[in-house]
């Protein structure tokens, strides 16, 4: 176990340095994630004309929380792994006495380190542009929200990694993750707070991971609606499922791998 921690620590510092090199790229990635603010602009305008249940300020707080929750859960493991399989880079990683999953996980974790200061900056600009929109949620909701968003990240990571593992069979599997991404876009509460969705839709997607990935941390942070702690159970359940899927695919897939002279 301590050998693994030492390896992880090294990998983290390596990938942090890597990420710093490409910080200009990460800036644009963060900017590309600003989409929730446009939904915020539409909903708070609707609220200003008196059409919905919440006030403009509540929408501002909610969509800011959505923005942060989405930023913390971004994953690209599918892309990296698929690239390794296609170009044969995986061979080198297979030689090392370490499951390549750890390497990709370190890559993601280190990137959060570069992203966080940028999020803080955006938070500052947001607080200046929309005075009064950001209020302190209190320690307990803040930490619970963080826990929810970490769990959401782990689940997204496991799904992306499983999709990446499919590259052993399909060469280019990254497109499959697009489906997950699109479903998450529409049912995670980015278009609007989930409480405004028709009830039938809310019920239909309740046991899927989608409504909890973003909405659970966002409700803790924004306090728009009382957060539903059962979301933890749903997220945890799906994380276990995809952990098992990833292990199975890894075992079966390794045997099929034959790229670049292996």
């Amino acid at each position: 176990m301590s050998a693994l921690t030492a390896k992880m620590r090294t990998l983290l510092s390596v990938y942090y340095a890597y990420m710093l090199e490409y910080r200009a790229e990460i800036v644009f990635w963060v900017l590309g994630g600003l989409v929730p603010f446009f939904f915020m602009a539409a909903w708070s305008e609707a609220a200003r004309q008196g059409h919905t249940a919440y006030t403009p300020g509540e929408y501002e707080r909610y969509f800011f929380a959505v923005f942060i929750a989405r930023q913390l859960a971004i994953v690209w493991a599918n892309w990296t792994f698929s690239d390794w399989v296609r170009t044969g880079k995986l061979s080198f990683h297979l030689l090392q006495p370490l499951d390549p999953a750890w390497r990709i996980l370190a890559d993601h974790a280190a990137e959060r380190g570069v992203r966080l200061p940028m999020l803080a900056l955006i938070g500052l600009v947001f607080a200046l542009l929309f005075p009064g929109a950001l209020v302190w949620p209190g320690w307990a909701p803040l930490l619970l929200g963080l826990a929810a968003s970490t769990l959401a990240f782990l689940l997204s990571f496991l799904v992306a990694y499983s999709v990446g593992l499919l590259s052993f069979w399909f060469e280019d599997a990254t497109e499959i993750f697009e489906l997950w991404y699109v479903l998450m876009l529409f049912f995670s509460g980015m278009l609007a707070p989930l409480s405004l969705y028709p009830e039938a839709v809310q019920r239909a997607v309740y046991y899927t991971p989608f409504p909890h990935l973003v909405y659970l941390p966002a409700s803790y942070w924004s306090g728009l609606e009382p957060a539903d702690p059962r979301g933890f159970a749903v997220l945890g359940f799906w994380a276990l499922v995809f952990f098992a899927v990833a292990r199975l695919l890894w075992r079966a897939g390794r045997r099929r791998f034959s790229a670049m002279g292996a």
Partner: peptide, 14 residues
Amino acid sequence: GKLFGVYLFYSNGY
């Protein structure tokens, strides 16, 4: 999903 997004606004009266 995009159609659903538009529907959400109209169903909330905006």
